[in-house]
C-alpha cells in the first residue's frame, strides 16, 4: 500500500577540505512517513538533508525521487524537482523586509515563469491560497506585517506556510526548533505535524531533542560519523541505543 517516494543509494559527500561528511547512506522512504533524524553534532545530519535537494552537491550516489535521479538532473530539471521538496531551516530564512504573505507567496516561484515570479506578479488565486495557508498556521492576523516583526516561532510558521505553498510531496526540516523556546517549539512541531498529516506530506526532520523525536516521529534514523547507525520505529529506540548514538568515539555496535 505504501509506495517508496524517496530512495537513497550509496550517497557520499566529501567536502572540498576532505571532510567525509556522508560515507555511505542507503535509505528508503515511504510516502507519508514522518522521519526524525537524530545524531551528535557534526554527524552529517544537515549535510544529508541538504544533499537531498542538492543545496549541497553529493559527491556520488543516487537519490531517486518520484522515479527520477535528482543527482543527475540538470539545472532546469533540478528546479522542477526542488519545487516538490519543501525545506525548512533553523534560521527561518525569510526575506525579513517583506511582508509575511509575500514570503509565503515565494513558495510559488518555482511554478511561475521567470519574469512573472521575479517581478512578484502573483494573481488573485495565488494570493488567496497564500492567505488561507497563513490562516492554517494561525497567522491570519500577521499577513501584512513585515516578517522581521514576528516572533521566532511565528517566523518559523511562516516558513512552514511557504513550504506548504509549494505543494510539495516531501518536506525537509533542518533543526526547525533549535533556536526556539520550548513552548514555541511545541507549537511549531504541532503545526508541522498537522500540515503533514492533512496534506499527506512525507517529512524528514533533523532534531537535537530526543524527546521531541520520540514524540513526533513514525520512524527514527540515527546518524553517526556520516553513517546510518540506527533505523527503526520509535519503540525500538532504547536508551542504550540513544546513548551509543551520542557517545563519543566509534565503539562498534551492531545496528
Amino acid at each position: 500500500m505504501m509506495e517508496t517516494i524517496l530512495e537513497i543509494r550509496q550517497l557520499k559527500k566529501t567536502y572540498p577540505d576532505g571532510t567525509e561528511a556522508l560515507k555511505n547512506i542507503n535509505l528508503s522512504i515511504k510516502r507519508g512517513e514522518f522521519i526524525v533524524i537524530i545524531g551528535p553534532s557534526g554527524a552529517g545530519k544537515s549535510t544529508f538533508l541538504r544533499s537531498i535537494n542538492r543545496l549541497s552537491e553529493p559527491t556520488s550516489g543516487e537519490i531517486i525521487f518520484h522515479g527520477e535521479d535528482i543527482v543527475k538532473a540538470n539545472r532546469a530539471k533540478l528546479r522542477k524537482m526542488r519545487r516538490n521538496i519543501g525545506m525548512i531551516f533553523q534560521g527561518f530564512n525569510l526575506v525579513k523586509r517583506l511582508p509575511t504573505v509575500r514570503n509565503v507567496l515565494h513558495g510559488k516561484l518555482g511554478y511561475m515563469s521567470t519574469w512573472k515570479g521575479a517581478l512578484g506578479l502573483f494573481n488573485q488565486e495565488e494570493v488567496e491560497e497564500a492567505l488561507s495557508i497563513l490562516e492554517r498556521v494561525g497567522l491570519e492576523d500577521q499577513a501584512f506585517k513585515r516578517a522581521d516583526e514576528l516572533s521566532g516561532g511565528q517566523q518559523q510558521r511562516v516558513a512552514i506556510a511557504r513550504a506548504i505553498n509549494q505543494s510539495p510531496s516531501i518536506i525537509l526540516a533542518d533543526e526547525p526548533i533549535a533556536s526556539l523556546d520550548p513552548n514555541s517549539s511545541r507549537v511549531v512541531m504541532d503545526y508541522l505535524q498537522k500540515a503533514c498529516q492533512e496534506e499527506g506530506f512525507t517529512t524528514i526532520v533533523n532534531l537535537h531533542q530526543v524527546d521531541f523525536a520520540k514524540e513526533y516521529a513514525d520512524r527514527i534514523v540515527g546518524i553517526k560519523n556520516g553513517e546510518i547507525y540506527f533505523d527503526g520505529p520509535v519503540k525500538e529506540l532504547s536508551d542504550d541505543v540513544i546513548q551509543s548514538i551520542y557517545a563519543k568515539g566509534k565503539e562498534a555496535m551492531p545496528v
Partner: peptide, 24 residues
C-alpha cells in the same frame, strides 16, 4: 479545494477571505 476541506471554519473563511485579498 483540499485546503478548504481541511479547514473547519468554512463560513468564517468565506467571510474573511475576500476582505483579506482586497487588503492585499
Amino acid at each position: 479545494e483540499a485546503l478548504n476541506i481541511s479547514n473547519q471554519g468554512e463560513k468564517g473563511l468565506s467571510a474573511t477571505k475576500p476582505s483579506k485579498y482586497s487588503e492585499y
